[in-house]
Write a protein that binds this DNA or RNA. Sequence first.
DNA 1: CAGTTTGCGCAAAATTCGCGCATGAATTGG
DNA 2: CCAATTCATGCGCGAATTTTGCGCAAACTG
Lengths: 161, 161
Amino acid sequence: MHFLQYHRMTKLDDIDLRLLTALQEDAHATADALGTALGLSASQIGRRRQRLEVAGLIEGYVAKLDPAALGLSVQAFVTVQMATHAPDKVKTFTRIVKLRPEITSAWTMTGDADYLLRVYCMDLAGLNELIHQVLLPHPAVARVQSQIVMDQMKTDGPLPI
Amino acid sequence: MHFLQYHRMTKLDDIDLRLLTALQEDAHATADALGTALGLSASQIGRRRQRLEVAGLIEGYVAKLDPAALGLSVQAFVTVQMATHAPDKVKTFTRIVKLRPEITSAWTMTGDADYLLRVYCMDLAGLNELIHQVLLPHPAVARVQSQIVMDQMKTDGPLPI
DNA sequence: CAGTTTGCGCAAAATTCGCGCATGAATTGG
DNA sequence: CCAATTCATGCGCGAATTTTGCGCAAACTG
């Protein structure tokens, strides 16, 4: 799923935006269905979609899984404050973050917390283990704070375009 | 993209898990390609995928867009503390959260913050407007704190299965 | 005004998917 | 231990979908 040749997009008309929105809701909709919904022929839908792909606006298509059905009953956000910003220490820390599967996303933030991690675990024991066996023992980590998700009121929705 | 009849899954074998992982990375991979990658025939890939869909493990397929390419240069996490938990006030608040397109996700959290909102904006002015014109004026909101994303070190990755 | 570009629909070609069918392994019951 | 049933698998054909070529019309350019 790599659209190698990036070609700068001149402009996005209204149909492009609506197509992007539709694809964010259901990427398996057929070109024919999208065409009738947007008032266009199926071939044109395909052409526009390909144009959006090579332009890099569409990074790819992914399956959205149900965490609860997979037994991932604990979602949490973990903030990390660093004890040091020495490059080598930070590098090993980011490597661990990228390697650990429970951490699905990680951001560097403004404010007092250096990193924000999004975490999925089977249970609280798993979260506890991540924090106390992986994060806290790391030499670059000073403080770890975790907030557990009680309820998801709005699931990862489409981007505002 | 609705798989109406839910059928409880007896078990997930190793191939199922690898198939789920692969579909999380590229949902447009052909059954043939997935088959050779997992050592299975294309028809079996299709059958297993359908089983995972009706079991509710796969919620759907979505396009992943590039926020930066769309001009959404500001990502932020906004924490909200409530002034009251009166049901009617909370209800109007959640309705606003669900309606506002800049807010792509929202969770209720443990800890001192009641809500965590994930926000995408074109610029800081947009974020500022959301906070000062929408969130803070709401009667149920006591305090709003925003942390801006400086860098995404790990993008929304596959669930740990 | 002429030439070029861009976007469109139609239809054919190529690819991919969906589903029935037969074979082989595994499990259960006697 | 063996037979019968069940279950998963691979194969192949027809259907659905995507992709591509082509002609046409509108918009843009010099």
